[in-house]
Structure formats: structure tokens, C-alpha cells
Design a protein around this nucleic acid. Structure first.
Lengths: 202, 202
DNA sequence: AATACAGTGGACTCATCAGTCCATTCGTAG
DNA sequence: CTACGAATGGACTGATGAGTCCACTGTATT
């Protein structure tokens, strides 16, 4: 199916994915229906099933992929250049700002726990996203080491994993309570502790 | 309604709540039906609506409360006595062990993001749980300060918030990827950093 | 023993929603 | 300009599941 799409077809398909993503963020995976998506994207049932023959699940996975592709992109260029403490702080502020602005309309919220558990494809997407996210953080820590701002002996992967967990937790709490206190605290403390790890040895 | 329940009624009601909780953990909030719950708890439709007149939503909130009540209880007595580094480590290991055993059947997973967003009552329950959890961690930090194992100048609330976020993130990642690496890293690093905060000043 | 009400059973209704099917239009290659 | 397949419209089906209703049973109180 993929190769046979005309330009018009491709346009419609991505209109569907983008519109579906918006609907899912607004209404949540549970209560979003194909009719909602049809209304939003000005498409008909037959179009939905034309582009996603396996039905709703296939569409959800496509949306998951679409959202996942944007999560890290949205943190650029900061996430890709974590080579100084200033860069880390800039990145931190961007992340906080972005998630505060999203409020409880989180693209990850749709993936995380909602699609993820039901369809195996979506779980793979989340795993891959986490892997890449953590790898970006690890790369940032390594470049601080290269700069001599952090000692070489640091357990980079453990640091990156803990930082990633802190972010995810902060976001989860933001989603379920509406408060960003924890996200802020997690990121500030996480980076401060990383810095202190340098001072301790240096 | 509450006050009028006979002993038999109370027994049935809690059988429903407990059974529903089990069903929700197994099948997820999205795909669990009243029929599933009826089958599991050996009750009829009329019983469900007798005890929860407002229907499924009311039952879900009751389950949320039930689960929330158990989350902190399950971490006792460790969570209540975080007055030495050994106690923190014991608590940490209990938490990790418990969540690893649960795998993706997490009571919080049901609350967090799934019930929470739809019904306002459930959100309040999650907020209260987070508050109490964080307060327990803060109390632990304060008792370390009282012992002289941590300096008095520490920002206790920020530390506790960050630690809570780390846990939640670790659990979220465990739920969506099936791996507990991040939960372990988050707790180990979090406690290690707390300890280092003491050394730095002491 | 009578009565009143909590507790229980389960058939029935009604709405919703994913998915099917066929008819029609559009776009393009020959 | 025609023929073919992609693209689209939308009515229809079937399943599912929440919630209603009424009849029946158990039990405690007087």
C-alpha cells in the first residue's frame, strides 16, 4: 500500500494522522472515536480504512509514531548540544516551558500507558523513544566529560537513566495533578546533582 | 446510602471493589467491562448499581481510593522510618522489589492518566496520594537532618519532590517498556545524591 | 407471624462505534 | 478521449456494553 500512494493520497494520509493526533490529545485515547477523527480531518470512513486497512489500531500506531518523532525534535537544538552547563540549563528551561504549555494535552500521555499496553507495536515505539532520549542525555554528559567539566569516572548510563526517569515522572505528575512543581524540582535537582558530582571529584 | 448498609451489604460492596480492582489491573481501565466485574465478583448488574448508583464512574473512583490507600501501606513500615541511610536503602529495595513483582499490573497505572483525567474525583485522590507520599519522604529527610546525617540547610521539599518524580518516572517507564532499569537507577542515584549533599557540607 | 426494606437475579433497552460494502468521482497514463 | 485504478462518500451491519426495570428472596424488627 505504501508505495502506491499518489501525492493526493499521501496528503490525505498525513492529514488523517495529524488530525487524529490532535483529537487523541484532546479527548484521550479512550473516548476518541473514528467519527471524531473523520469530522476533524474531513474524511470518510472508507478513507480511514483505505489508508489504515487494519483499522483503528493501525491508525493509533501511526499516530504514536508521529508523536514520538516530534518529542525529541521539539527539544532541539538544545538537546543535541548539551556541552556546557549553560546549555543544560537552557535545555531544562525549554523542556519545562514546553510541558507547562502543553498542560494535560501531552502527546506522550496518549502513548504512555494508553496505546502502549494494548498494541505491541506502540510499545516498541515508546521503547525506542526512551532509548534515543536517554542516549541524547548520555551524549550530553559525555561531552561534559570531554570538556573536563565532569570527571571521567562517572557512570554515564545510570546518570542518564535517572535523569530520564525524573523527567518522565515530572511529566506524569503534571499530567495527573496539573502541577509542574515536580517536573521543575526533578530537573533542577537532577542537573544540580550532576554538577555536584563533578565538584566532588574535581 | 453509606450508613444504611448491613453487614452483608458491606461485604458485598467490598467484594465488588476488590474484584473490580483486580479486573482493572489485569485488563486495564479501557477494556474492563461491568460484565467482567460481575463475573469476577459473582454479582449481578442490579447489585453493581445498587452499591454504585452513579454507575461505572462511581465504581472506578471507589477502586481508585481503594488502590491509593494501599500504595503507601505497602511501603510500610520502611517508608515511615527513614531515619538512617540503612533504612533508606531498605525502603528503596522494597519499592523496587514490589514494582518489579507487579510488572505491568500497577494499581497506580490505572489511576494515573487513565481514570484520573476523566473523573475529577479520581484526580483529587491522586493529588492527595502524591502529597502524602512526598510528605513521607520529606519527613525521612528531616529525620536525617535531626540525626545530623544531613545538613540543616537542605531544601527538603525540593529534594522530596524530585525523589517522588524519580520514582513515578521509573514506574511509568517500567509500565510502558517492561524494564525496571530506570526505576533502579532513579532510586539509587536519588539516594546517593542525597547522601552526597550531606558529605558536601559536612 | 407480619411487614418493611435491604439485597439479589437477570432480561431488556438503547446508544455507540468499529468495520463492511458498493456506488461514484478523480486523476493520469497510454 | 478512454480506460483503469486510486480516492472518496456514505449507508448499513453487527457487536458490545452501560444502564433500567421489575420480580423475587432474605432477614431483622415489632
Amino acid at each position: 500500500m505504501r508505495g502506491e500512494l499518489t501525492a493526493k493520497g499521501r496528503a490525505t494520509r498525513s492529514r488523517i494522522v495529524e488530525g487524529a493526533a490532535a483529537v487523541l490529545r484532546e479527548r484521550g485515547v479512550a473516548s476518541a472515536t473514528l467519527d471524531d477523527i473523520m469530522a476533524r480531518t474531513r474524511t470518510s470512513k472508507s478513507q480511514l480504512f483505505h489508508y489504515f486497512p487494519a483499522g483503528k489500531d493501525e491508525l493509533l500506531v501511526a499516530v504514536a509514531q508521529f508523536e514520538a518523532d516530534h518529542v525529541l525534535e521539539d527539544q532541539q537544538p538544545y538537546l543535541g548540544r548539551l556541552d556546557s552547563w549553560e546549555a543544560w540549563e537552557q535545555w531544562r528551561d525549554v523542556v519545562i516551558e514546553r510541558y507547562e504549555a502543553q498542560g494535560d494535552e501531552c502527546p506522550l500521555g496518549s502513548l504512555f500507558l494508553q496505546i502502549g499496553r494494548s498494541t505491541p507495536g506502540a510499545r516498541a515505539i515508546v521503547i525506542e523513544l526512551m532509548r534515543r532520549w536517554q542516549e541524547s542525555l548520555a551524549a550530553g554528559i559525555r561531552s561534559l566529560q570531554a570538556n573536563g567539566r565532569l570527571p571521567a569516572g562517572l557512570d554515564v548510563d545510570a546518570r542518564a537513566a535517572a535523569l530520564l526517569a525524573a523527567i518522565q515522572g515530572g511529566v506524569s505528575i503534571l499530567l495527573s495533578t496539573g502541577r509542574s512543581t515536580h517536573l521543575r524540582a526533578a530537573l533542577h535537582q537532577g542537573i544540580a546533582d550532576l554538577r555536584r558530582a563533578g565538584d566532588a571529584v574535581a
